[in-house]
Each structure stands twice: as structure tokens, then as C-alpha cells.
Design a protein around this nucleic acid. Structure first.
Length: 470
RNA sequence: GGCGCCGUGGCCAAGUGGUAAGGCAGGAGACUGCAAAUCUCCCAUCGUCGGUUCGAUUCCGACCGGCGCCUCCA
């Protein structure tokens, strides 16, 4: 196996990666805050993590992945308060939607989807440990904060130590209770609206709720262990979220929290970060309504390296729709064929080498995608020669299967209902008869009628094939 | 103000110190009754200006343009 390298945000270098124990990658991915359906920007990150997961497995490692569901935070409480609901009543349906969208996009299921509210005891325990070590303190406002100046190296991930905070710039307003403006909340004292929406728990520091960063440390460590192999998320989480996770985890255990940190870049729309507050979000349901298949979206997302910003545009999406159509047609052809040539086997070997190398080079999906399309062209060319080498064909199928096991970009076949299928077959029989008596006007009329129903047909020496195109 | 990223053909995009993968779109041809699919061929000198070098898209500098983080955020 060639090297497998990943960019590590912690060192800002590309480094060889392997799980610490040699075979299971302990992988934590920051998941969604479930107060609203996740938008495509969120899903770009989840898709990047899906790609990473699949590549790790392709390398022969097993993966134990945790993706948290943040089901208690300011926005959730705000929504619950507005709707006179409990936070659970707000988050439950959103979680259902999240999984539906996730499955639609063919994002593999992680091993664990812990909800923050199910790990309150573990979080309280973590805060207690920090308090015992003298790095957490209870302030006058009743909340517990992490004292960043008690943790040497605070901000090492974002290189906070090398930068200055702009004087008078956007520093939170409610800081007066804290010893240091950048100290962050571990445990927030309860407010009336927290009680009303059932977002409070008893703790040694009084009733309250966990701070945002706390859940990830607590859940990652209790499920995966105190030092995990890989921690991933969107680039905006580097600071403060991930820096704070590092601080609270490492201050408690004295051990490195994560060996590798990987961050995916943003999805932009109209040249700006896709975000709810910018008002340029679109989600999976918008996509489905516009006829963009999961395969096409995956192709689109994987057409750019994960550490590069990607602009969502109709034109680019159109390109992906067409590209993926080609992949789908090829996949069907590969199943249909009976034999190949020695050059086909060589192309398969090239595909395997090229794609493995590309994936191993910091997840260079665009390059692997290029290799796949080069293979498709070469294979189509060889298949046109009507070879009889069954072994070569088997190798081509296997190589293609392996690469697609990572990309998963074959468009779903539109479900054909039996009645439609019978109707199409009868039309095609009539058309074939017309063609045989060289009544092409009739044959073309049939084709036109089928097209109006969204059925495209292709004549070939072995008969006429058809498919639903819309 | 601090930190960081990016700028390759109409659109998307990989890449290397020695004259630019791939996809979409477009053009020409083969195949086809016609289409479609498929195949073949064609289509860029890499933001600008300097510098280093035998040679730079690739290294350095400046500039221009775009984006992000520094506050909740994938």
C-alpha cells in the first residue's frame, strides 16, 4: 500500500497517517446543531468526512466514528421558547430530517450519534476534574468558566498566541463576570427560559446547562478514549471551538486529545459563505426539487479538494449532472458486456494505482476523479472492440467498483413502475416493427411520443435500450 | 488591525522548475435510416508587474482582485 497522508491542522503540514493501534481509526466528527435542517454548506463538511471515512476503510482500516448531535444551545432554546416547546420537542424532528438527508446523500452511517443531552453526567464529571485541577472557576454570575491562562499553549490550533485581538473589536458583551475576556463557559447558570424549555440539569454548581464546547470533549473521550486518532469539522470550528476542546480535554487528562485535526473548507454561494445569517442557504430538499441527484451533488462536492473553497453554481451543478450520467451509463455497460481486452485490464490496473495514490495524498478527490474518467474513456474504447477476455472484464468491474465505493456517484435508477414499463416495451416493439419495414416516420413518431413521457431510447446492435431521464 | 486561503481555457478543476490531468459546454469526423450513446481529433501558456534561474504557471517580492477566521457558525 502506498503512503496515506493527511494535512494536520495542528502542525499545518501534510503528515503520514495511521491509527494509533494499527487497525481501528477513532474518528470524531463535529455534527449538526439540530434546530433547523442542515444546509448544503453543512453537508459539504459531512460529505468530506464521508469521503475520509470511505478512504480510510479502503485502506483496510476499520473506522469507529462518532458524530455528535448538538441538541441544547442558545438557538435551540430560543426556538423552543418562541414555540412554547421543550428543546426535545424542537430537536427530535430535526434529527429525523438530518438522517433522512444524510441517507439521501449516501453518507455512510457513523457508529455513534450521541446527543449532548444524553451525556450530561459525563460533562459534569469533566468540569469537576477541571475544577479539581484549578483550571475552572465559578464566577459571580453562577456559571463555570475555563481559565485559559492556566492552560499553557492555549490557542495552539488556531495560532492564537501569535495574533492580537483587535482592540475594542467584537468581544462578547457579557464578559464582566469572567476573569479573562477569552475564558469560555463550561457550565452556564440556568435562566428562566432554560427552565421553561427543559434545558436545565442539576449540577454541583447549581442548575444550568453545558457550554457548547464541553459536549464534544466529553462524548469523544467517553466513547473513543482520551486520545483519539482524528477529529474533523468545518474550518470555522478551528477557533474557538476546537481550541477550547483541546484546552478542556488536555487540561483534564494531561494527554493529547486528538492526533490529527482535519478541517473542510466552506461552500460558497454567490461568492459568499453559505450561512443562514447571510440568507443564501439551500438544503437537500431544494436540491431534490430541482432534480439534482445525490450522485450529482457528490460529484460536485468531490470535484474540488476539501481544503479549498467551493462555489455553488447552477452551471457547475449542470456539469456534475451530465458527468454523473456518463458514469451511470458506463456502469450499466460494464455489467452488460461479456468480455474485454488485455488493454482493458491494464486500464483497470492504472485506475487502481492512480486513485489509491490520489486518495492517499491528502484526499485528493479531484485527481482520483480524473483517473476514473480516464478509465471510463479507455474502457469504453476497449469495450467497443468486442473482446472476449472475461478475466480482463472482471478486473475492470472490480477496479471500478472499488473507486466507486469511495465516490458513490452512480445515479439512482429511476424507479420504474410496472405499468409504465409494459407501456414502454409495447411502444418499442411497435417501433422495432416499423423500423424493420423501414417505416422511419412511424419509428420516429414513437420515439417522440416516448420522449414526451421522459423516456430516452438508444438503438444498438443487440436491441433498443431505454431509460427514464426525468 | 491580526491570522489564513485563493486567483489555471466559456464553466468546474488537477498539477509540475523544463513548455499545462480530467469533467461540462463548443467545433469537426466515425458509427447510425435518423437520433442517442460511444470512439477519434480540435479548443488555455496558467491575475498583473518585477526578481531569482540556462529555463517559472510552478520559487521570491510588490500590486490588483476574491474569500474566510478573529463573535454563534460546517
Amino acid at each position: 500500500m502506498p503512503d496515506f497522508q493527511l494535512y494536520n491542522s495542528l502542525t499545518r503540514e501534510i503528515e503520514p497517517f495511521a491509527p494509533a493501534d494499527g487497525h481501528t481509526v477513532r474518528f470524531y466528527a463535529c455534527g449538526p446543531t439540530v434546530y433547523n435542517p442542515a444546509h448544503l454548506g453543512n453537508f459539504r463538511t459531512f460529505l468530506f468526512e464521508d469521503l475520509l471515512r470511505r478512504v480510510l476503510r479502503m485502506r483496510g482500516w476499520s473506522v469507529e466514528q462518532v458524530m455528535n448531535l448538538t441538541d441544547v444551545d442558545d438557538k435551540i432554546i430560543k426556538r423552543a421558547t418562541e414555540q412554547h416547546k421543550t428543546i426535545r420537542q424542537v430537536t427530535d424532528p430535526v434529527i429525523v430530517t438530518f438522517h433522512a438527508d444524510r441517507e439521501y446523500l449516501r453518507i455512510q452511517r457513523a457508529e455513534h450519534y450521541p446527543r449532548a443531552t444524553d451525556f450530561i453526567p459525563q460533562m459534569i464529571d469533566l468540569v469537576s476534574r477541571l475544577e479539581a485541577k484549578g483550571v475552572a472557576y465559578k464566577a459571580e454570575d453562577g456559571s463555570v468558566y475555563f481559565a485559559i491562562d492556566k492552560f499553557p499553549g492555549y490557542g495552539k490550533l488556531s495560532q492564537l498566541d501569535t495574533r492580537e485581538i483587535r482592540a475594542g473589536a467584537r468581544v462578547a458583551q457579557d464578559d464582566y463576570a469572567k476573569e479573562n475576556a477569552q475564558d469560555f463557559a463550561l457550565w452556564k447558570a440556568a435562566k428562566p427560559e432554560d427552565e421553561a424549555s427543559e434545558a436545565v440539569w442539576d449540577s454541583p454548581w447549581g442548575r444550568g446547562r453545558p457550554g457548547w464546547h464541553l459536549e464534544c470533549s466529553a462524548m469523544a473521550m467517553s466513547i473513543l478514549g482520551e486520545t483519539i486518532d482524528l477529529h474533523a469539522g468545518g474550518i470555522d470550528l478551528v477557533f474557538p471551538h476546537h481550541d477550547d476542546e483541546i484546552a478542556q480535554s488536555e487540561a483534564a487528562t494531561g494527554k493529547p486529545f486528538a492526533r490529527f485535526w482535519c478541517h473542510g473548507e466552506f461552500l460558497l454561494t454567490d461568492g459568499a459563505k453559505m450561512a443562514k445569517r447571510v440568507g443564501n442557504v439551500s438544503n437537500v430538499s431544494d436540491l431534490r426539487a430541482n432534480g439534482v441527484s445525490a450522485a450529482a451533488l457528490r460529484h460536485f462536492m468531490f470535484s474540488t479538494h476539501y481544503r479549498k473553497q467551493l462555489n455553488l453554481s447552477g452551471e457547475a451543478l449542470e456539469g456534475s449532472i451530465e458527468a454523473v450520467r456518463r458514469v451511470g451509463d458506463f456502469a450499466e455497460r460494464l455489467e452488460r458486456e461479456r468480455g474485454g481486452t488485455s488493454a482493458l485490464a491494464e486500464a483497470a490496473e492504472t485506475l487502481l494505482v492512480e486513485s489509491t495514490t490520489a486518495f492517499g495524498d491528502d484526499l485528493n478527490a479531484p485527481r482520483a476523479m480524473g483517473a476514473m474518467f480516464e478509465f471510463i474513456t479507455a474502457a469504453n474504447r476497449e469495450l467497443d472492440k468486442r473482446g472476449t477476455d472475461a478475466e480482463a472484464l472482471a478486473r475492470a468491474r472490480e477496479a471500478f467498483r472499488q473507486v466507486n465505493a469511495v465516490f458513490d456517484v452512480i445515479p439512482e435508477r429511476v424507479v420504474e413502475d410496472a405499468a409504465l414499463s409494459r407501456w414502454v416495451e409495447s411502444q418499442l416493439a411497435a417501433r422495432t416493427a416499423a423500423r424493420q419495414r423501414r417505416d422511419f416516420a412511424e419509428a420516429d413518431a414513437v420515439r417522440k411520443a416516448l420522449e414526451e413521457k421522459g423516456i430516452a431510447i438508444e438503438d444498438s446492435p443487440s436491441g433498443t435500450r431505454w431509460k427514464k431521464v426525468r
